[in-house]
Amino acid sequence: MSASGYLREAPRRYRLEGAACKGCGAIHFPPRAVCDRCGGRDFEARELSGEGELLAYTIIRHPPKGFEGQAPYAIGIVQLKEGVRVLAQITDCDPAELREGAKVEAVMRRIREDGGFIEYGYKFRPA
């Protein structure tokens, strides 16, 4: 990833900033250009709560490049309070003890070092 691309995404990576459609109120994460509910193109930035429920997960034991130091780790689909679903790494836990339906909360963590800089982004941990 380029440094400029990373910084463009920083608001959503660092603080889960989504977009709320001004026409119908639908919340999108990540933000998008056109609302898939009403076709509106007018949005306002909306910081999401980061509170959610783990819907499903899997454990990565053979990680891709850049994630070697973290394996084994879990990635999962989290349903946020706002209704948005997010795919993210689950941290601060023993993956073997995770359960679907567990309450989780968003945190900003190191994702990996690539391109000469450190990528930070959201992960979830058991609440």
């Binding site: 660092y14 941290t91 601060d92 900003m108 963590r109 190191r110 994702i111 930070y120 992960k123």
Partner: peptide, 13 residues
């Protein structure tokens, strides 16, 4: 620190 924590992530929290 955990493997994904450093002075920046801790300061933010």
């Amino acid at each position: 620190c955990g493997p994904d924590e450093d002075a920046i992530t801790m300061a933010k929290e």
